[in-house]
Design a protein around this nucleic acid. Sequence first.
DNA 1: CATAACTGTAGAACAATGTTCTATACTTGT
DNA 2: ACAAGTATAGAACATTGTTCTACAGTTATG
Lengths: 193, 193
Amino acid sequence: MTKSTRTPSVEITPGVLRAGIQILDTEGPDGFTVRALAVRAGVAPMAIYNHFDGLNGVLEALFTQGFSTLHEAVDIRTDNPLADFMSAGLAYRSFALENPGLYTIMFLHRFRNFEPSPAALYAAAMAHQALVAHVERCQESGLFPGVSPNDAAQVIWSACHGYVSLELIGINFSVKRDETYAVMLETLRDGFG
Amino acid sequence: MTKSTRTPSVEITPGVLRAGIQILDTEGPDGFTVRALAVRAGVAPMAIYNHFDGLNGVLEALFTQGFSTLHEAVDIRTDNPLADFMSAGLAYRSFALENPGLYTIMFLHRFRNFEPSPAALYAAAMAHQALVAHVERCQESGLFPGVSPNDAAQVIWSACHGYVSLELIGINFSVKRDETYAVMLETLRDGFG
DNA sequence: CATAACTGTAGAACAATGTTCTATACTTGT
DNA sequence: ACAAGTATAGAACATTGTTCTACAGTTATG
């Protein structure tokens, strides 16, 4: 009686995605290869082509998953719009620091021959809309007058993304990083009036 | 009489660097290969190893050159500190959009096996110091009270980098990009008080 | 001018990569 | 029990970074 070495179909897709995240978290983009994915997921290299559209298919799936998770992370709603706005800013950074692998695919590395599909970019746009909604709710409470919600959301996203990306790639000259990030969010809040 | 096919030593280094920038500007990181560099610079592939420390050596040189150029671009000094601060913000974006190849190496792509050396990171720190100086000069004029110049510089850099990097990788939902960028700089200026 | 030291070039070679193909063997549904 | 579907192993190919070697053009020195 020999133990089967064959992975059931339904376990392959999630297993490969989990392996991809692990590899990116621990080894970075360099380790993200077909053979490494197969080894870590315990499947044959061919599985990457049978269950995804090659390496790009895996990247596409993780790209979309990343923006969905980010969307959920910043979609905070209590009865205090301004507090929610600040919480979303903090949640953005937490997502990035806790999911460096996904963040790498989403923003920090252009993989060979990979271009996110329109469907994947739609997931990114939805995450952006969550920020727009925060600004709109603040404006309904009389805050942030005179700025377009879309522009304000882009400004916030830019600042948050810029901060965490500089942090992740090792070009951040702040000593107390949590405090400097808080200063940034407060500066934006005050700057929007 | 056959025309010489040999490139004089002194022309090789600058030629390879120029070729590298051209490749990154037109084809992106995927096209940045030893053989492509050699073809475009009109030298032998071996030149990349004789004149640089392989592909990483070329990246290192371009990384450092990028931060030096960025440093010069934001190092603006008139008799109006606040205007200089705003000009530096605009100059940052101009640098990025005009030098997408260099910007890619500096911030947008983790090349295989490439880690910038301490000397290269020093060039990055010097560029950061130029921003710190802007904030300090504003504070000498009574502006931006109550914020650490280092923190303020990190906040500004984060916002500017975040904005242009989202722009360069195609995840920017602003319609009038120049105007939104201006709104961001004004928001930071006002937010710092 | 002649000769030696240096240096750029061409081309082969190697391991690792993404990708495709084929034959085999396991699983599942009827 | 049997047929259809699917996961696997392994070979194969082009391209990549890198190293090595033999050769030829350039430059410095006598």
